[in-house]
Amino acid sequence: MAARIDHLVTSGTFSLDGGTWDVDNNVWIVGDDDEAIVIDAAHDADAIVEALGGRTLRAIICTHGHNDHIDAAPALASRTGARIHLHPADLPLWKMTHPGTPPDAELADGQVLTIAGTDLTVLHTPGHAPGAVCLHAPDLRTVFTGDTLFQGGPGATGRSFSDFPTIVASIRDRLLTLPPETEVRTGHGDPTTIGTEAPHLEEWIKRGH
Rank of each mutant, 00 (worst) to 15 (best):
T80M: 08
G100W: 10
A73W: 11
D24N: 12
I84N: 03
H124C: 04
N67E: 14
P154L: 09
A156T: 01
D6R: 03
A59T: 07
T13V: 15
G158N: 12
E181K: 00
V38E: 15
V184I: 15
T193P: 02
H64L: 07
G53W: 14
W28V: 01
P179T: 04
G100N: 11
C62H: 07
K95Y: 12
A72Q: 10
A42F: 04
A45C: 10
H209L: 09
S170E: 06
G18H: 05
M1L: 06
A105W: 01
H188A: 09
W94T: 09
D163K: 03
V30H: 01
P74M: 11
P126V: 01
E35K: 01
V38W: 13
D71C: 13
A198W: 10
T80N: 09
T192G: 06
T114H: 06
S160N: 07
L175K: 01
P165R: 07
E181I: 02
P138D: 11
G127T: 08
W94H: 04
Q111W: 01
E181T: 08
T80D: 03
A137E: 12
T80K: 01
S78D: 15
T157Y: 04
F164V: 05
E202G: 01
K206L: 10
V27T: 14
D68L: 03
I39F: 11
A72G: 07
T182W: 04
T142K: 00
A132L: 04
I61Y: 00
S78H: 02
P180T: 11
V30S: 00
T118W: 05
T121F: 13
L140D: 12
H64V: 00
P138L: 05
G12Q: 13
V112R: 14
H43E: 12
W94E: 09
A73P: 14
G12H: 13
S162D: 07
I84L: 11
A36P: 06
P74C: 11
W94C: 02
A198Y: 02
A42K: 06
I60P: 04
D163M: 04
G65H: 00
A132K: 03
A2P: 14
G12S: 14
A3G: 15
H128G: 12
L120F: 14
E50L: 14
D33T: 14
L57R: 03
F14W: 14
H200C: 08
D119S: 13
I70A: 03
N67S: 13
H43W: 12
A3M: 10
A82V: 00
L8N: 05
